[in-house]
């Protein structure tokens, strides 16, 4: 049985490779600096690096969805917005 039933495309494969690389990067980071970097951020939440990645990814998904729903394509602007958002989350949340 091949993988044709999964209907892979290059963009979706790239998306999952990116997510996989995020996990690898987080593992390397954890290996280099164990403990998860816990802190009490500006939202009043106790977060670790993993939480911050989760918040970044979930928030980015909603940034893209909101843009698609309100403005439509192209998606360069929400991509930039999502990157800025992720940096802010990792810096302050």
């Amino acid at each position: 049985m091949g993988l044709s039933w999964m209907a892979w495309t290059w963009p979706t494969a790239a998306f999952f490779i990116f997510i996989g690389l995020c996990f690898v990067a987080m593992s390397v980071w954890e290996y280099a600096d164990p403990g998860g970097g816990p802190r009490h951020g500006i939202l009043g939440l106790d977060t670790t690096r993993g939480d911050r990645l989760f918040i970044s990814l979930l928030g980015s998904a909603f940034i893209f969805l909101a843009w698609l729903g309100l403005m439509g394509t192209p998606l360069w602007a929400p991509l930039a917005l999502a990157l800025v958002y992720a940096v802010c989350v990792f810096r302050w949340v």
Partner: peptide, 22 residues
């Protein structure tokens, strides 16, 4: 993952898919 793949394509059956973007 399969659902993600389906969500960017169009199909008329027979496991043939066409790119549809977002």
């Amino acid at each position: 993952m399969t659902v993600v793949n389906y969500s960017v394509q169009e199909t008329f059956g027979d496991n043939v898919f066409f790119w549809a973007g977002v």
